[in-house]
Simulated scan of single mutants.
Amino acid sequence: MEPRVSFVTLGVSDIARARAFYEILGFRASSASNANVTFFDGGGIVLALYGRAPLADDAGLADSAPGFSGVALAHNVRTETEVAATLAEAEAAGGKIVKPAQRAFWGGHSGYFADPDGHLWEVAYNPGFPIDEHGRVTLPFDAA
């Protein structure tokens, strides 16, 4: 397998509501979107919104109650002050602040919000993982 993540699909209870939330945050829906699925360019990864029950059915699983799933999406920013500003944008768009912006144990600054369906997003400034001119995180690698 080539190491790559192509899509992240979020199961949502109301596609139109979820689409509006992410559009307020600045995501732009692809023309390939329709009433049953929305596709956003996530900076090299596609963020897709799909009905929660149909997504569970497609995977052959029973739908379960929303809650902590053990997964958090992340949006890294270029400065510490952007963490609080981005969390405020998410809250104004209808998200819920789960953890306000604060100094992180790993030396950066972060906080969390949940989208209207409870999907967890971390907003983080990490001085060890700079963001390039295309908005992508640059990971450090030791020379082998």
Rank of each mutant, 00 (worst) to 15 (best):
D117Q: 04
R136D: 14
A85E: 15
L73M: 11
S64G: 13
E122D: 11
E82M: 13
D63P: 08
E80T: 14
F105W: 10
W106N: 05
F40Q: 02
V77N: 06
Y125P: 09
L47N: 03
A90R: 07
A62N: 10
G67L: 00
G60P: 04
A101K: 02
Y125R: 07
R136Q: 14
F68D: 13
T79D: 12
A53H: 11
W121K: 03
F129R: 12
F129T: 14
A56D: 01
V77C: 08
R136H: 14
G107D: 05
R103H: 14
A53W: 02
R78V: 12
A92M: 12
R78W: 09
E89W: 11
G111L: 04
G135D: 12
R136K: 13
A65I: 02
D41F: 04
G107W: 06
A85D: 15
L87M: 11
F105K: 10
T81P: 08
F105V: 10
Y125S: 09
V77G: 07
V137L: 15
P130I: 09
D57C: 06
T79S: 15
F129Q: 13
E82P: 09
G94Y: 10
A101P: 01
E133A: 15
H109L: 03
D132S: 11
H75A: 08
V123S: 06
L87I: 11
L61W: 09
A48R: 00
G108T: 04
N76M: 12
P127G: 10
G118T: 01
K99P: 01
L120H: 07
A88Q: 15
V83E: 09
L47R: 03
D115R: 00
T86H: 14
N76K: 08
D58Q: 09
Q102S: 15
S110Q: 13
G43F: 08
N76L: 11
V71P: 00
F113A: 04
Y50V: 00
I45E: 07
E133R: 14
E133V: 14
Y125F: 15
P66T: 03
R78S: 14
F68M: 08
E91Y: 08
V83M: 10
D58G: 05
P66D: 00
H109R: 11
I45F: 07
G118N: 03
P116L: 02
Y50H: 15
A65H: 05
H134A: 15
G44T: 07
G107H: 07
G135F: 12
S110H: 12
P66H: 00
A72P: 02
